[in-house]
Design a protein around this nucleic acid. Structure first.
Length: 425
RNA sequence: GGAAGGGUGGCUGAGCGGUUGAAAGCACCAGUCUUGAAAACUGGCAAGGGUUUACGCCCUUCGUGGGUUCAAAUCCCACCUCUUCCGCCA
């Protein structure tokens, strides 16, 4: 969430900035609530002060052996007045919180203004889209060979938007995971973490999925408030929730492989073919928790870490910066990596790298102690996919396909495939 | 699942109805001493919020939520969580 102080002191400028996101801030309501809050809080606190002072004097009088009855009479009725004031204040604060929790992050100045994904701006490209001297297939047709990708069986077992992988395809999927984790831990200095795939609602509030985006999540236990993770970002980032780290402990650099579960509630009819948009997919996530002064450099660095995976796999891609209308709720700036898919003749998102400033850290109360001031300060959070495994598998299939339908194994994956050179059609 | 015992500041840990936001120790910061460091000594040191031009004053917080009371870290209830033992189990 945003710093309540800037909302109080600079509401109009906040509203102005949010317009770039097509977000209309109800300034009048917020101002009215704020004025009300102020009055209620002052009133409540002065009543509390009165109660505390009088209670102490009763204690002293009693210790001195004096008659306390007159003092007790004085304090009669105070309790009810206090209760009334408190419940009024609570109600105002509840209303304000509801609004505050629904306000998206402010954007970084460098984010281009735009309406939707069509206004995203290409930053750089890497590699050339491959040309083939035969008719290319998409991953669904390629995966049909040998029953490698089996959507029918998955729909029997569960339903649409799931996949069963068989044999060498399942192994290739696993190889991608191992490869990515190895690169990030060995070359980029991340520590591998294994985390729960079910999280509580506090964690989801911390990273910003709740309260606003509950429909995107799978709830496994309504009563306990337990949900399947939509991304490793949630459990990994929440490692820092309610913690104060020493300066020597940051930056925290963590990577984790997890499955991700998304209801895809808002995407009916979109990408229904193949495994581009699944309810369950795997991802290797990279996360950094850093001091505020480093955050923007770290976003650039972390994006390059994700890009390096595509480069090692020799998959052509481009990097785009999301425009103001397309940046997610909690992010201040986002780069998407889009891999070239010959089967679609298009670049498709394979990674999303974002800097959140202190937006998530404030919700989580994730802090570090600055040795210069000796005071706790909010961390900044930066994360990205490094990469989405299912979509990477799709990209490998389509980019490494041969005319006979077999798939060459990228050089860097061969050690993970037990020396296998290609998936034989 | 059964039994018992815990959850207190950055950490360890005392307190078990009233001047305790909380002893003591560690860590940290400043100073004295020292060529410098260490040790020793002295002092400082929770977070969040409100209000004020400011000094300051005030409120909240001892796992969470409720209750009792003029007054709760302290008593009562529920829940969460950790440890140990037993049972069951991948």
């Amino acid at each position: 969430m945003l710093d309540p102080k800037i909302i109080r002191s600079d509401l109009n400028s906040v509203a102005e900035q949010l317009k770039k996101r097509n977000f209309e801030l109800d300034v009048a309501t917020l101002e009215a609530l704020e004025n009300n809050r102020k009055a209620c809080q002052v009133n409540t606190e002065s009543l509390q002060n009165e109660r505390n002072t009088k209670s102490k004097s009763i204690g002293k009088a009693k210790a001195a052996g004096e008659d306390i009855q007159p003092l007790l009479d004085e304090v009669a009725g105070l309790g009810e007045k206090l209760d009334a004031a408190k419940s009024e204040l609570n109600e105002v604060q509840r209303q304000m919180d509801a609004i505050l929790m629904g306000i998206p992050n402010l954007l970084h100045d460098s984010v281009p203004v735009g309406k939707d994904e069509d206004d995203n701006v290409e930053i750089r490209t890497w590699g050339q889209p491959k040309t083939f001297d035969f008719d290319v297939k998409d991953h669904v047709d390629l995966g049909a060979v040998n029953g490698w990708l089996d959507f029918e069986t998955a729909s029997k077992i569960t339903g649409s938007r799931y996949v069963v992988m068989h044999g060498q395809m399942a192994k290739l999927h696993r190889a991608l995971i191992q490869f990515m984790l190895d690169v990030h831990t060995n070359e980029h200095g991340y520590t591998e973490v294994y985390v729960p795939y079910i999280v509580n609602s506090e964690s989801l509030k911390g990273t910003g999925q709740l309260p606003k985006f509950e429909e995107d999540l799978f709830c496994v236990d309504k009563e306990a408030g337990h949900y399947l993770i939509p991304t490793a970002e949630v459990p990994v980032t929440n490692i820092a929730r309610d913690e104060i780290f020493d300066a020597a402990q940051i930056p925290l650099k963590m990577t984790s492989h997890t499955p991700c579960f998304r209801s895809e509630a808002g995407s009916y009819g979109k990408d229904t073919r193949g495994m581009i948009r699944q309810h369950q997919f795997d991802k290797v996530e990279i996360v950094q928790l850093v001091s505020a002064d480093k955050a923007w450099d770290v976003l650039e660095e972390l994006t390059l870490h994700a890009e390096s995976i595509l480069q090692k796999l020799e998959l052509p891609y481009r990097t785009v910066v999301l425009c103001s209308g397309d940046v997610g709720f909690s992010a201040a700036k986002t780069y998407d990596l889009e891999v070239w898919l010959p089967g679609q003749q298009a670049y498709r998102e394979i990674s999303s790298c974002s800097c959140f400033g202190d937006f998530q850290a404030r919700r989580m109360q994730a802090r570090w102690r600055n040795p210069e001031t000796n005071k706790p300060e909010l961390l900044n959070t930066v994360n990205g996919s490094g990469l989405a495994i299912g979509r990477t598998l799709v990209a490998v299939l389509e980019n490494y396909q041969q005319e006979d339908g077999s798939i060459l194994i990228p050089e860097v994956l061969k050690p993970y495939m037990g020396g296998v050179e290609k998936l034989q059609a």
